[in-house]
Simulated assay, not measured.
Amino acid sequence: MLSGLLQCSSCGAGMVKHDNSSGRPRIRCSRVAESGCCDNKRRYYLDRIEAGVLDSLRAELDQPELIAEFVRTYHDERQRLAGANVRARAKDETRLGNIRAQMTRIVDMLAEGGAAFADMRGKMEALEQERREVEARLATADEQKVVVALHPQAVRRFREALDALSVALSNDRPLANQAFRELVAKVIVHPAPAGVEPKIEIIGN
């Protein structure tokens, strides 16, 4: 039921069925089985891994309010960042206007003979360098000004998958349900000493 989803945290290889102990299948890092080149050499009971996955998912399903809180926090942070970007852009635009005005004054002074070229050259070069830097920041700001919002459709699909999985958990084969596959991308098994249950990390959509 977890075929293709199990992954060893030590080397990133897949975890595969290794043997049976008292009728219970055990899994092991495939790299250990093939070449022995991994520190995660222990064999783990598959039913305990499955139980750990289900327990973690049930814990998530018992806290649906966290989804709403995540959406709210996400949008608040995006708005804060957008506001900071607006203020930074306004500051750069003001500075760019000042730089151009200073450069114009220097050109006028040189044209009127009121300043020596050698004296103004260093100032002009420094202003030109700063002008390019400010314009580059403004160009980058234009590329990033679109606020990436968490689309309501994505939130709705996630909630539907959670609801479907909640129902599936009471079935005979809950992990084979399509809702499970939609939410869970991989299950990472962290090494643990003998007699200690391994940490199960679920990477989901």
Rank of each mutant, 00 (worst) to 15 (best):
D142G: 13
C11M: 08
A154V: 10
L66H: 06
V184W: 00
P191L: 04
V155P: 00
V146C: 09
F117S: 10
R26W: 10
V196W: 05
V155K: 01
D172C: 04
H18Q: 12
E143N: 11
E130V: 04
E160V: 03
E112D: 15
G52Q: 05
E125L: 14
V147G: 02
Q102I: 11
R156C: 06
K91L: 10
A88Q: 13
H18S: 15
Q7K: 12
H190R: 13
D62L: 00
R31A: 07
H75I: 01
P193G: 08
S30R: 14
R156L: 12
R131W: 09
S166I: 02
L5T: 07
I200M: 05
G97L: 06
V86C: 02
G113W: 09
R89K: 11
I203A: 00
K145G: 01
D119T: 12
E60R: 13
N20Q: 15
R131T: 03
A88N: 09
V184E: 05
D55W: 00
Y74G: 03
C8P: 13
D47G: 09
K123V: 14
A33N: 13
R72V: 01
P64W: 07
S10A: 11
I188Y: 00
A84S: 08
V86N: 00
R87L: 07
R31N: 13
L66A: 12
N20Y: 15
G14V: 04
E133D: 12
G122N: 10
P193Q: 05
L61V: 00
A141R: 07
S21K: 15
D47H: 14
Q63L: 08
Q144W: 13
M1G: 13
E143W: 05
S35T: 14
N177Y: 04
I106P: 04
L138C: 10
R72C: 00
G12P: 05
M1R: 08
L6R: 05
M103S: 02
R159V: 15
Q129W: 09
A185V: 14
R24C: 12
